[in-house]
Write a protein that binds this DNA or RNA. Structure first.
Lengths: 379, 379
DNA sequence: CGACCTGTTGCATACGGATGCAAATTGAAA
DNA sequence: TTTCAATTTGCATCCGTATGCAACAGGTCG
């Protein structure tokens, strides 16, 4: 439990007040450091395995083995070492361990867009799952436009054990291959042909078809598609799946808006274009953020009622899609499943990932909500 | 430019189809690897400085120096080494470098909540700024509840150069001190007394007061406060600043809702409680997500018009606050400035951070929008 | 009682670069 | 031409842990 700080307490530290670029600085002296529990020297440098070993009169190897599960060491010796290690607060230096084992326990996570709420959620779950099995996440936030190879060069030098790419956009296959050279790599929600990269993705075609079916069942006949980033695989699959299915059902594709980005404002803009033509019963947006922008624009600018005048559906099922105000029908990506599969792939024989690039498709769920005229069961 | 994949292409890879837990697997053989440009052996292990040196007939030290800015080495030798290194695709092994320099160039970023859109934005900017100066971000996504020390033990073993804590909640000062032991640590938007931790925060009191003033100017006299997590410093400061200022202005505090979380639904709930009493002109929510939930609930459940019947303001200025549908008056946190200051602190003499825990307060800006009856200039 | 096997332990070295120090080279000053 | 300083370069060693190998201990079996 965290201590509740007194609400009335004034800030006692001297502060650096900054206002509009001007700043006045004052610093406070360092608070006294309390000594280590076992009266050890309060040097800032952590203790090493050798020192620990010498103190105990054993070899450094023994210490190493004590911390290595399955190593050849007597149970009582191990216990003695671990106990003493805990007392003097010794922990094996991960860096040194990486060097000798040539395994870092670090997974590189390449991201390019944290604005779409779908990604932070995914990253959060992913990094937590990885942590749970002792892997850390090194974040590579790449910026569109500037030199990608330069941005990813660190990815190579840091010897990450594997790379997970969450960026739906950017990054050509060749750049990625270069960056991950010799390392297992997994793309999430992105499929690249002709590389030795594995992919885990939602079955976008299935989802798009399910939404087309749903529109049909709800009575829509003239439907529109609003693209995200046109050339991304996710967009293409959703688009193809949707367009194909509505053709099968004999529905009319009343409009199809090309997209330059997955964003709220792009959704608004597309929705207004479609509404202006007054020939559409239902719009399928390539993802939820677009759809949410679309709903707002339809209701507030186009004067349409959703769902009374027009249906709207998205894709992903981000938290906002469930908000009562939007209550957006969407196709839920199986985030937990995606995370599970990715972690399994990494946990398993990683070298196998290199030998055979695997593509895994996961099924999602159609989530019916008010934006297509369905009264949802719960929030 | 990225190649545009043909929209009609079928997925040619064999796939692992997964539906509802059942899966069928087939793998494809690995694509042929093209050899390295300079005809080097296509072994997966990267070349080392020693090998490179031997090939060039120089010492390993020379190679190391060629890659070390400011090292004592002749310009032409350096050029020759770098040129050849580029040819054989040599890059210094970061792990080995860490071990000998005892500097990792890795910054630990501790987060606990990526749901609030404010944080992903901050993390994104932060990690990009760090990358720009050659620092990588190791993400520690801590989970409420479970053993924090265990979750943060990696933070110690990985010898990160510094720690940035973005979690507004969780984490007692003592746990943090333990985790960052001997390392510079910077808290963002959180002030902890009596530790050697530095803090960079928005001037919450100033912001809350500004919003109180704004309410007053707009004609509100009976105002309410909706707390986020009650015991967090951000909440306390905003609450105190606001309550104090409205007292100074002679306004009435018509309601004050305690909070258990910073979330959309908490905002809805609080708004409904306040609306039920029908005695409030304006509500200040501890952050934007709460406020946005509040607006939705007021409009859709309580039947109030915002801003006609009641004003609403938030804090942070997340992207959604600017959306036309919400057009939320809020106090913008100086994110860029925060990032700049944090990076400067880390870039500068980091050991100074340890000696003197510094607190920096940055000013934000009042953003007036329609939720308090102001017509904003632009989107 | 000796050969043998299993289970422990320590020794020595590897992992890949960084760096203090001394040797070597160059240039300049005397 | 000689001497001294400045600049380069290489050698050796260190960073802290992991691990192959040999040595050794204790116990079993014949």
């Amino acid at each position: 439990m965290e201590a509740i700080e007194s609400a009335a307490s004034e800030c006692k530290k001297s502060e650096i007040e900054v206002a509009n670029g001007e700043r006045t600085m004052r610093k406070q002296g360092s608070p006294s450091l309390q000594g280590e529990p076992p009266g050890e020297a309060l040097s800032r440098k952590p203790i090493t395995a050798r020192e620990l070993a010498r103190m105990l009169g054993v070899s450094q190897s023994a210490v190493s083995r004590a911390f290595t599960p399955g190593a050849s060491i007597a149970a009582d010796l191990r216990k003695r070492i671990l106990k003493y290690a805990a007392e003097v607060d010794y922990q094996p230096n991960a860096i040194a361990s990486m060097l000798s084992k040539s395994r870092t326990n670090i997974i590189g996570i390449v991201v390019s867009d944290m604005q779409n709420p779908f990604y932070p959620g995914l990253i959060e779950k992913l990094s937590r799952s990885l942590q749970r099995i002792g892997l850390q996440s090194l974040l590579f936030n790449i910026t569109k436009g500037s030199n990608l190879e330069e941005q990813l060069s660190a990815l190579r030098r840091y010897n990450v054990d594997a790379v997970i790419v969450i960026s739906a956009t950017i990054l050509s296959g060749s750049t990625l291959s270069w960056a991950t050279e010799g390392r297992p790599a997994i793309l999430i929600n992105r499929v690249i042909e002709d590389t030795n990269l594995s992919c885990v993705a939602c079955n976008n075609v299935e989802g798009a078809r399910a939404l087309a079916d749903h529109f049909y069942q709800q009575g829509a006949r003239r439907v529109a598609y609003v693209a995200g980033l046109s050339h991304t695989t996710t967009n293409r699959e959703r688009q193809n799946g949707f367009v194909t299915r509505i053709a099968e059902l004999g529905m009319t594709l009343s409009a199809q808006i090309e997209g330059r980005e997955y964003s709220y404002y792009a959704g608004r803009k597309a929705a207004l274009e479609i509404a202006a033509r007054k020939s559409t019963d239902a719009i399928f947006f390539a993802n939820d953020i677009l759809a949410i922008g679309g709903i707002d624009a339809l209701r507030e600018e186009a004067g349409c009622r959703v769902p009374d005048d027009i249906f709207v559906a998205g894709f992903d099922d981000i938290p906002m899609a469930g908000w009562p105000h939007y209550s957006l029908t969407t196709f839920r990506q199986p985030v937990d499943e995606i995370v599970r599969v990715v972690v399994e792939m990494i946990e398993g024989d990683t070298s196998a990932l290199l030998r055979a690039a695997t593509v895994i498709r996961l099924s999602g769920d159609l989530i019916e909500r008010r934006s297509t005229g369905v009264e949802p069961k719960a929030r």
